[in-house]
């Protein structure tokens, strides 16, 4: 699959995610957010290899965006109390990732330039997706509070843990992905 088709697929997944969320929350204006995000990515990606940069940013932003949708859903349906299942699921995913990618991660790592390079790059990737995650949560909650004129009570401790787990999960996922990419 070439980059343009991959881009279309990712955007379709984003629109599907936000479509489901807007249906569940009965707020169609949420559907406009991915379009805004796509415009921002197109605006930010400049210079050489524009298509590649757009693709990279879109993948990272999409990960943050879908995770943001999940957190927004959690905030709105707080009464169901789905923190624990989400956190448990994330912990299991992190554990599975560690097991699956353990062959790529050195047992006795020497801190050298390659390891630093991997850490820097995965940190950058995690930062981009975390930024998109936070923006998604803020914008969605703003739209929802403006339309329904209600504010959502947020339990800071639970959501901080949840968002931190998501960021750690992203960092671990990008780190493992980069190890696999460079070493296989």
């Amino acid at each position: 699959m070439d980059i343009k088709n991959k881009l279309k697929l990712i955007i379709a997944i984003d629109i599907l995610a936000v479509g489901i969320l807007s249906l569940l929350l009965n707020e169609w204006r949420l559907c406009l957010i991915p379009l805004f995000a796509i415009f921002m990515i197109w605006f930010l990606a400049t210079g050489e290899n524009k298509t590649k940069k757009i693709y990279k940013l879109t993948v990272l932003a999409s990960i943050g965006f879908i995770e943001g949708c999940l957190v927004v859903f959690d905030v709105v349906h707080n009464s169901i109390d789905i923190h624990i299942p989400i956190m448990g699921f994330l912990c299991i995913l992190i554990g599975l990732g560690v097991l699956y990618f353990s062959k790529y991660v050195p047992k006795h790592p020497i801190e050298d330039e390659f390891m630093e390079h991997i850490a820097e790059k995965s940190g950058h990737f995690a930062f981009v997706s975390a930024t998109c995650l936070m923006i998604t949560i803020c914008v969605f909650l703003l739209i929802l509070s403006l339309s329904s004129k209600t504010t959502y009570g947020v339990e800071v401790r639970e959501y901080t843990i949840e968002i931190m787990l998501l960021i750690v999960f992203n960092f671990a996922m990008f780190r493992n992905y980069l190890f696999k990419k460079y070493l296989s």
Partner: peptide, 25 residues
Amino acid sequence: AKKLGVSRQTIISIEKGKYDPSLKL
């Protein structure tokens, strides 16, 4: 890797042409 004081992963990635080493290395 031991002689150069780097990790084995560094040598693998350079050999595969997937990582460009620093000028120093």
